[in-house]
Amino acid sequence: MLSNFRPAIVMAAIAMAFFGFVYAFAGTGVAQLVFSHQANGSITANGSTLIGQNWSDTVCPGHPLGSCVFQGRPDDLGPYAANPKQGVAGGDNPLIACQSFPGKKPVCTNGESAATNLGPRSKVLLENTRALIRYWHARGVNPTTDLVTTSGSGYDPDITPADAIAEIPMVSKATGISPARLRSLIAKETHGPELGFLGSRYIDVLQLNEALAKLR
């Protein structure tokens, strides 16, 4: 019985050294050397292309908040990233997310990534979805499924081409860019499925809005 403690302790120590630290340090070394952009979070000038942002409170002079950009999917905080309660910095919230409004103090929310976890027959989900549909209708958008449902991570960085096309009337009105030009912009920013067959066609909202900003 007691004679088993020595190998148990030695084995636990070896495991901790090898599989805890040598593994992770060697992995980090290789990752930083070969894929340093990805390993550090795919961060570009305006944020990580892998982490969704709250676009619904973007200031658009003369137009409702968030109407001059393409918006991402809603999330659980807020009520939503497509935020009916304007001025409340909800939305995609990795650890802390802040939104600044001209002339006001930035509003910050603490949190971590989260899904709503609402069941398919939840009254709360029903009410939330109704609020989102009203939000989109007020902006002349006939919403697709993705635009009224929240993601699993809480900061889905992507939308589908159909979602972006649904937002065209709103963006076109607020930016004055013709629907045809927006349509070709969307086509240009659409990523095909991985290897041609894995997953859905998608658009990275940050990249789409960067391209949109160049167009204006």
Partner: peptide, 10 residues
Amino acid sequence: DVLNGVSQTI
């Protein structure tokens, strides 16, 4: 992000 005034801590 200068496009939407968002700052995030990731």
